[in-house]
Simulated assay, not measured.
Amino acid sequence: MDLQASVDEAASRTGFSGVVRVDRAGTTELATAYGLADRAHRIPHTLDTQLGIASGTKSLTALTVMALVERGALALGTTARSLLGDDLPLVADDVTVGHLLAHRSGIGDYLDEDAIDSITDYLMPVPVHRLATTEQYLSVLDGHDTVSRAGERFTYNNGGYVLLALLAERSTGTDFHRLVGELVCEPAGMGDSAFLRSDELPGHAAVGYLHRDGLRTNVLHLPVVGSGDGGLYSTAADLSAFWGSLFAGRIVSPDVVAEMVRPHSDWPEASERYGLGFHLHETSDAVWLEGADAGVSFVSLHQPSSSLTWTVLSNWSAGAWPITSLLRARLSN
């Protein structure tokens, strides 16, 4: 069975809803939209639908920070405390930008994934409408005890990436969402990528659903506007453009890219390694963005050695994983 037929069959069997795209050496080999972007109004997905990428946003946060490092506004050795002042007193004085990027800060996490029973639970500790700007996240980042010494070990940390967004804002005096747009999306040619409010989505954006069937959305489950750890909406075409621009040095320099996709930590629990904002394969040069939230599942992978890029975007909580597994099995070298 050829790849298109295999993806079609898996999409039909699993109720996949979203967009799948595969590119190799600049040629699009597969690009197909499935299911409904808005179930209540029976609006189908198209190849141009904007879908949430959840924690895939972290890679763009990391690139924003590294672009600021290149410009001298931050350094990997900049301490969080130097910009926090009296805010977040439980963040240790020696935690640096470099620690936060590598998930080696040791700070407590406002959204500890190891303690989550189900991704569709109501996880936000405050009403979601109170989380619309990065500064507003201070209320949920505060009060979490240090769990390890800075640099001691890798622990995936959502709050650390919101803190990076806050440091980016305070070092520049510019809104974080604007920084991502100017420093990453514009040079990458990602014209359809942005932080959208979940309670006023435009007509070309997909509504996120908790389950394969039904009309229950994720609007009460996620911050109304994401920040450094999630919340960007993007398209399959934009993500394809992202990888080409990243490795061509159009976002940050090739030397910085190499540092970001170099393994900084082993992550045996996930059978992978981690760089600075990027997931890395255990043995190959494959690098990817990944996100999972209530109403969102997403992977976009690039393998430089084979010039292969593939992206799976879905607007329900577990929708992307069967297609992701199929593409990993069919396309891995």
Score class of each variant (00 low, 15 high):
159 G>P: 05
265 S>W: 01
75 A>N: 13
204 H>P: 06
188 A>E: 10
290 E>L: 15
81 R>S: 05
172 T>I: 09
225 V>N: 01
239 L>W: 05
232 L>H: 02
50 Q>T: 07
321 W>D: 11
169 E>T: 13
8 D>N: 11
166 L>S: 06
161 Y>C: 00
110 Y>T: 07
258 A>S: 15
18 G>C: 08
250 R>Y: 00
119 I>A: 14
176 F>Y: 09
37 A>V: 12
259 E>F: 11
238 D>I: 08
101 L>G: 01
159 G>F: 00
52 G>E: 12
184 V>A: 04
299 V>I: 12
297 S>Q: 09
190 M>R: 07
273 R>G: 07
191 G>A: 15
60 L>T: 09
276 L>S: 03
275 G>D: 03
131 L>F: 06
331 L>A: 07
273 R>Q: 14
266 D>I: 01
118 S>W: 14
156 Y>I: 00
144 H>L: 11
118 S>Q: 15
296 V>W: 08
209 Y>P: 03
229 D>W: 01
143 G>A: 05
275 G>W: 11
153 R>F: 12
31 A>L: 14
101 L>Q: 02
76 L>A: 08
219 V>Q: 15
161 Y>L: 01
51 L>W: 03
117 D>H: 13
6 S>E: 14
107 I>F: 04
287 V>M: 10
101 L>I: 11
327 L>Q: 05
135 E>H: 14
23 D>T: 15
98 G>F: 00
65 V>A: 05
280 L>N: 00
281 H>N: 12
256 V>P: 00
46 T>F: 04
141 L>H: 01
227 S>F: 02
196 L>E: 04
282 E>Q: 15
68 L>R: 02
285 D>L: 08
12 S>G: 15
